[in-house]
Computed example of a mutant assay.
Amino acid sequence: MSSASSSGIGLRIALGTAQFGLPYGISNARGQITQDEGRAIIAQARSAGIHTIDTAIAYGNSEASLGELDVSGWQIITKLPEMPVSGDTVADWVAAQLDGSLQRLRTDSVHGLLLHRPAQLLGRDGQALYHALLAEREAGRVGKIGISVYYPAELEQMPPSMKFDIVQAPFNVLDTRMARSGWAARLQDAGCELHVRSIFLQGLLLMPRPARPAYFSRWNTLWAGWERWLQDTGLSPLQACVRYALNAPGIDKVVVGVDSAEHLAEILAAADGEMPPLPASLHTDDTALLNPALWNRS
C-alpha cells in the first residue's frame, strides 16, 4: 500500500467531535475538552485544510459547543438519535430535531444528516422516516442524507429503494469488514460516500500492552501479532492506524477525534508516509472486540 498524498490529507479527514460534548474514548484520560481547547483544535484543523466536522445530537453538548466556536463555513454532519414513540408525526419529529441542531450549531443548514439507528428504517415508520430525510434535503436544510452503521449486515437489510448519499461505518487495522464484505466497493460504485470512524478503536489500538484493561487479554495472540508487525515495519501505532484508513480504497472521509490541537497535529504528521501491507491475520470479525458497546471496561 502506498502513501497518502500529503497535499490532500486535510481534505480526506473529518474532525470527530464527540470529545467536545462527552468524556469519550477508553484511552481518554483528560475527559471532555474545554472551549479553549476546542477553539485551538478548530483553528488547527482549519489551517490543515480540514473542512468537515462530524457531530451528533447524542454527543452531549457537542453541537452547542461547536456553535459557540463559530463553525460557519464548515461542512457539518450531524446525526439524529433514535426516534421515540410519541404523538408527533415522523416528519414533525425529524424537523424538530433538525431545528434544534441548527439552532445549537448556529447555522441555517448542515452538509449531512445521518440516522444513528438505521434499523428504524425497517420498522413501521421506516418509509415515513426516509421520506422525511428526503424532504429536508429537498428543502435545502440538509445537503446529504445517510446512515451510521456498526457492521455491514445492516446495509444488507436496507430496502433497495432507499438510496443514501453517505454511509458512516467503523474501520481500522483489525476491523476491515467494510472492505472484506465488498461494501466499500459497492458504495463507491453507487456514488455513495463512505466515511469511516473508530480508526483507533476508541484509542485501544494506541495503548501499550500494560495500559490495556484486563478484558482485552483474551485477544493476546492478536495483540502479539499487531506488536510484532509494528516492530517489523518500524511504524508507530498512530502512523499505522491513520495511514491504513487513508490508503484503503473506497473511503471518502476518515473521521478522527482528538482531545487537543497537539493531538491533531500528531495525527496529521503521522498520516504522511508509506503504508506497508497489513497481514490478514490481524483482521477479525469478533464483535466482542470490535464493538465498544460490548466491552467490559474493568
Rank of each mutant, 00 (worst) to 15 (best):
I145K: 06
K79E: 02
G257N: 06
E274Y: 14
Q157D: 10
E68L: 11
S161V: 12
D92Q: 13
Q157V: 00
E68W: 00
L134G: 07
S7T: 14
L264A: 02
F200P: 08
L235Y: 13
A153M: 03
Q157S: 14
I76H: 09
W229D: 11
W229S: 05
F200K: 06
A153I: 04
P279R: 07
R141T: 10
S3W: 12
L222I: 02
N291C: 09
D108V: 08
R39Y: 01
M158Q: 15
D232M: 12
A214E: 15
G126F: 08
Q157L: 15
P277R: 11
Y150C: 04
V196W: 04
G126T: 12
N291A: 14
A40C: 03
V196D: 07
K163I: 02
G273Y: 13
I251F: 07
S109E: 12
L230D: 05
I50E: 03
D272W: 09
L194Y: 07
V196R: 10
E274D: 15
Q188R: 13
G38T: 09
Q239C: 10
T287K: 06
G182M: 10
D175K: 08
Q231V: 04
V94G: 07
V142M: 08
A179K: 03
V173G: 06
L113D: 08
R228E: 15
A211K: 14
H283Y: 14
L122R: 09
T52N: 10
R39N: 13
T89M: 00
S3P: 09
M1Y: 10
I166C: 00
D88W: 00
P152R: 09
Y24L: 03
G126W: 09
F200D: 09
L105A: 06
R212A: 04
I76R: 05
A119N: 15
H263M: 05
E68G: 11
C241W: 09
I147W: 05
A271L: 12
A270V: 04
E37I: 01
H111Q: 14
I199A: 01
A132Y: 06
T284G: 04
I77H: 11
G203T: 08
A43C: 04
Q120V: 02
I251Q: 08
L289G: 06
A96V: 01
G182E: 08
A185C: 00
A14C: 12
M178K: 11
T287G: 05
L238S: 12
T89Q: 01
W223S: 05
Y244H: 15
D165T: 00
T52A: 13
S236I: 08
I9H: 06
S109W: 13
G73L: 06
L282D: 11
S148V: 01
H195M: 05
F164V: 03
K163Y: 00
A245F: 01
W229I: 01
A245P: 03
L115K: 13
G257V: 04
A128P: 02
T284P: 03
E138C: 03
P276Y: 11
W74G: 11
L289T: 08
L122V: 10
G16R: 07
S47T: 13
R106E: 13
